[in-house]
Amino acid sequence: MTENSVTDNSWGGPAGRVSPRLAKNALRNWRERLIEGLLFCMAAVSVLTTLGIVYVLVKESIIFFQHVRIVDFLTDTRWTPLFDDAHYGILVLISGTLVSSAVALAVAIPVGTIIAIYLSEFATARVREVAKPILEVLGGIPTIVFGYFALMVVTPLLQRVLPELPGFSLLSAGLVMGVMIVPYVSSLSEDAMRAVPMSLREGAYAMGSTRLQVALKVVVPAATSGLAASYILGISRAVGETMIVAVAAGMQPNLTFNPMEPAATITSFIVQVALGDLPHGSIGYLTIFAAGLTLLLITLTLNVIGLWMRKKYREHY
C-alpha cells in the first residue's frame, strides 16, 4: 500500500495520534491480565497434580529398584515384602487384581450394556427419568459400604450355594465390584448410543425392523467405539478399586486364578501396608510406591485407549 492510497481515503487522511478517550487503559489492562494469569495458575494445578503423582511414584520407585531387581519384581512368584525372606513378585498382586476385575466385568459389562440398550432404545421417557437417578445413586454409594455389603450379605449368600467358599474371596468382592461399576458402564454406553443419529434409527425402522433389531443391528454397531470406551473405563475402575477388595477379598498375597480363593490385589496391599506402621523410607514403605506405579501404568494405558476410542466415535457423527 502506498502513501497515496492512504491519503486517498475519503474519511479524511491518516488517523493522528490515538485520542486519549479511546486509548488503552493501562490500569484496566493490567488488572485483566493479572486475573487471567491467576485463573491460568488455577487451571495449571491439575497438571501439577499429575506431575506430582508421577514424581512421587517414580522417585520412591527408583529407590525401591535399587534394592530389588526389576527382573525379580516382574517374574518372582512370591510376594512377601514384610517377611525376613523378602520376595517382591508383583505378579502375585496382579493375579488377584486380574481375577477380581474379571469377575467384576463379567457382571458389569453385560448388565451395564443391557441397561444402556434398554434405556436408550426401549424405555419410555418416564422410565428413564426414574431409572437414571437410581443408577446415579448406585454409583454414588461409598465403596467401603459396598465392601461391607460384600462381606456381610453377598458372601453368606454365596456360601449357601457354594459351601466351600471361604469368608474372604475374590468372587464375592468381584461380584459386588461389578455391581458398583454397572452405572459407569451403562451411563457411558448410553451416551454413546444416544449419539447415534436418529436418522439411522428411522432408516432401520422404515425397513420394518423390530426394536431389538434396530438396537442390535444398527445402533450398537454404530456405537461400537463408544461402547468399547465404556468397557475400558470400566476395567480401569475395577483395577483401581480398593476398599471392596480390601474388606471382602482378604489381604493375603496369593498367586491364583481361582476366584474362590482369597487374595490380595495391588490396591489392597497398599491399604494393608498403610494401615501398619512402617517407618518412612523403609523398604516396606517403598513397596507401596512400586505397587502404585504399576497400578498407575495399567490404568493409564487403559485410559489412553479408552479416550482414544471415545474420540473416535465423536468424530464419526
Partner: peptide, 18 residues
C-alpha cells in the same frame, strides 16, 4: 480427563509423598 480416571488410592500415595 486423565486425572478423572486415576484410581483414588494413587492420590493417597501422592499425598503421602508430598
Amino acid at each position: 480427563t486423565n486425572l478423572a480416571a486415576v484410581p483414588s488410592i494413587v492420590y493417597g500415595l501422592l499425598a503421602l509423598g508430598i
